[in-house]
Design a protein around this nucleic acid. Structure first.
Lengths: 145, 145
DNA sequence: CACGAATTATAGCCTAAGCTATATCTTGAC
DNA sequence: GTCAAGATATAGCTTAGGCTATAATTCGTG
């Protein structure tokens, strides 16, 4: 047998794990975006209609329909055919979390000198990769200054 | 005709554009990761072999082969069957840019209080969404403190 | 209350990125 | 120089997320 007990993984393995994590994050990123969007629409108009979701996400209507189907599968939304889409409790909770994280990321970017517009643009992609640990660090940084 | 000359786009449109941009970024993110990785391997071992690329990326070997094919299509790498993979000049330039951006992102995260390990983990996903403008802001922030 | 317009769903297609299984090529050891 | 082991390529499948075209449903208006 080899020298060592379960211990330091190889550098290659560590690096691979980072990429695996990034890919995992990516797979939930779209879900998060849709959930947040549906939350917005529910707040603004009482319900989210597929056409509005599609318009705001910048996708074709059938793409939005398919995304909603996935949200339903994951227990984040409910809907009946030809009717509006609504978030479940889990969906609502996620939407709130995503919204808060988005605000924090934008605020941090602005705090370190990124122009508002750019911050808003970049945050859309960045936010999904901000872990809870990093998010807390951002909050600490923003509060003590 | 309507009231206004080509001007302020609708909020929905603006939001859609942000998502479109995030999706675009995503489509080049993997290319960037592979190019950086191949650069690392070339520096360490003189060439990048498909098996090593696969191991470090945490994917199966055929997935790496396919990725290399895409890199070749995009003019970022060259290779001959059953031989190592090498970066083109364009690939090398991109690798250097990606590596520098990665370092800056990690440094900024650490500077605002994110633990090293977490910074390294999150940076892997975040970096691809950091625009040139944001990167410059990060550099300014890091230099004046 | 019926019908046309608007909305939503469905069908079918494409590409990217992952996988396993298997075929092909290279190379080092004998 | 052969051949077995190792590395790479290929075939074929899956899922996700796009798209267009078209079918089905709902709803406001006359």
């Amino acid at each position: 047998m080899t020298e060592d007990i379960p211990q330091a993984p190889s550098p290659a393995r560590e690096q691979a794990d980072r990429f695996l994590r990034a890919r995992e994050v990516q797979s939930v990123a779209l879900l998060e975006d849709y959930v947040e969007m549906i939350g917005d629409l529910m707040a603004e108009m009482g319900e989210a209609r597929v056409a509005d979701i599609a318009e705001r996400m910048g996708v074709a209507q059938p793409t939005a329909t398919k995304a909603v189907a996935r949200l339903k599968r994951e227990g984040l939304a409910i809907s009946r055919p030809y009717r509006g889409v609504f978030l479940t409790e889990a969906g609502g909770t996620l939407a709130e979390k995503v919204r808060a994280r988005h605000r924090t990321v934008v605020a941090l970017l602005v705090a370190v000198g990124v122009p508002e517009e750019t911050a808003e643009l970049d945050a859309e992609g960045i936010e999904h990769h901000v872990s809870d640990s990093t998010l807390r660090a951002f909050e600490r940084y923003l509060s003590q200054r």
